[in-house]
Nucleic acid binder design. Structure first.
Lengths: 329, 329
DNA sequence: ATGAAAGCGCTAACAC
DNA sequence: GTGTTAGCGCTTTCAT
């Protein structure tokens, strides 16, 4: 059995409260005593029982992280960021994957919410009202989604789309297609909004190809529509879909970038490894994870004192081989 | 504030103990009473406080999962399996990523170990003796590694390598290279062992190209050695590396599969999407995760009663376009 | 079958 | 600055 605070107290010749203080509020205890206590704790390999502590403080030292699908490389990157930052702040991370199912998502938020101090929802698919409800009973931070005053970390999609469109325009493209992600995805809508603004400003024509699953296969499925639409360039909701596009375009004999320029979003590892390498709007995924933890912690520690519970992270176009000069036609 | 067991008790007109029993040991309570209690609990939205329960039962209902690097798609798949099975069994999962650092790994096992009922170590990189030590104080299950009598879930690497070699032999190859993973990886050693046996049995020559980081870049780095070695076929420690090989081979003008056949291991999503698609030894990653949870739970629930704490999962060669008939030369 | 009481390990008032 | 006391929410003897 692990050592308890009483044993440490006995070993150090002090009372349990002093041990507790020496560990949690070192300033409030005499340096000599503190030293003695710390030594005793060390000797016994003592670590406070977090459950017991939580019972009284009402805080668990845990945070929950809910993602739609770990199989999409975007999410593991965010998770790594959350992980790393949480560990620094001495929080442990509960992870749950919803398999893109909004119902499961709500259930998980409910369940996990009881075991943690706060929750990070990454690209949540649930309806706004449900998340608003959940907000009442749990401290939560959204990543990659924003509405109302729910604390959130998002990427500057509008600027990302602006960069992508500027790039295509510079290459001489006049018509660009958008391959949208899931209907439930806020960022898909937000990116389309940015794209609308950017193409309008640039005087380019935008063809919207609707919603597709955010996977490789989604991109494959979209490719033929894109070819048929007669555009010379296409931006996909994410890199996975852009890679699917690349694959199907090649199978159809459409050369990239000669016949078609392709841009993805996310900058997943694989985007640099495809042939041709994928031009993409790079998102600092791990940093988003870290920012979400920072935000959550500040919310937890000064519930009212948080000035601005909204972070927006910059985006950066990475030009690679999948975009090129438009063919004159 | 959430409802407590006393409020439910009052609402139902019974004592707290009865409520506790009605929930945890339904058989031991009068059906009528039970019904009344359940209704009251329902009405108040009661859910037991797991910390308080844990304090007394000594069990947290949590399991920990430690992986070397979520950025390698192999691991998210395992995590999904662990996740899913744990949720079914009403366990929550703590996740930690060590960034391939054995020291961090040991530290994390220590820390996480105190907050969970048991730990799953996926492809642990620590030294055997350290893990053996840790075993004393924590219930743990390893995935993708095996030694001593530590409970483990592994893949049948030997048979996987046999299938791969048989495939290459059938295609007329006589010389095959092995691109190894990290020195700290047990499965890398185990696969090499299987490969040695298989090539010897098949009368094929094996060229071992040493250890490389288990990433795309590791494969890129290995490619030139492989070309120089004069083999006609190569098996890589994992798909990521095999994809790196594919990329560098193309850049060097080596045609796959005409000039070189390439086989990976893992069957990550991307392996099916590359051009050419990658022949690979498929591992049921999610199933390994589920099996690990099952094993852990049985260990937890009948500490002594577990007959065999070792699972070995089958492997299956998936033939795709990256392997072809050997050029006569 | 149910209730009363004790206590898991810890922290937070409140004394001193 | 330190010890004493009470009690967080729950389960589990031990009575009844």
């Amino acid at each position: 059995m692990r050592a308890t605070i009483r044993e440490v107290a006995r070993e150090a010749g002090v009372s349990p409260s002093t041990v507790s203080r020496a560990l949690s509020m070192p300033e409030m205890v005499n340096p000599t005593t503190r030293e003695r206590v710390l030594r005793a704790a060390q000797r016994l390999g003592y670590a406070p029982n977090r459950a017991a502590r939580g019972l009284i403080t009402g805080r668990t030292g845990n945070i929950g992280l809910i993602v739609p699908d770990l199989a999409n490389p975007f999410f593991p990157s965010v998770v790594k960021g959350v992980q790393a930052r949480a560990r620094e702040a001495d929080y442990a991370v509960f992870l749950a994957d919803t398999d893109e199912d909004p119902t499961a998502e709500v259930g998980l938020i409910r369940v996990l919410g009881k075991q943690v101090d706060g929750l990070i929802l990454c690209s949540p698919r649930a309806r706004e009202e449900e998340i608003r409800d959940l907000c009442e009973s749990t401290t939560l931070v959204m990543v990659n989604r924003r509405f109302g005053s729910v604390p959130s970390v998002v990427f500057d999609n509008v600027d990302g789309m602006r960069q992508a469109v500027a790039h295509l325009q510079a290459l001489g493209h006049r018509r660009v297609a958008w391959v949208g992600g899931p209907r439930t995805s806020w960022s898909s809508r937000d990116r389309l909004r940015g794209l609308r603004a950017a193409t309008a400003a640039a005087g380019m024509e935008l063809v919207v190809a609707g919603h597709f699953p955010p996977h490789f296969e989604g991109g494959v499925a979209a490719a033929d529509l894109i070819i048929a639409s007669g555009v010379t360039s296409v931006i996909a909701y994410n890199d996975l879909m852009a890679l699917g596009l690349l694959g199907r375009l090649r199978d159809r004999g459409v050369q990239v970038p000669e016949d078609m320029s392709v841009i993805g979003i996310d900058d997943i590892q694989m985007s640099a490894m495809s042939a041709p390498a994928l031009t993409t709007v790079s998102l600092s995924k791990a940093q988003a994870g870290r920012a979400a933890v920072d935000l959550l912690i500040s919310l937890l520690e000064q519930p009212e004192g948080v000035r601005n519970a909204r972070r927006e992270l910059p985006t950066q176009l990475l030009v690679r081989a999948s975009t090129g000069v438009a063919q004159t036609n």
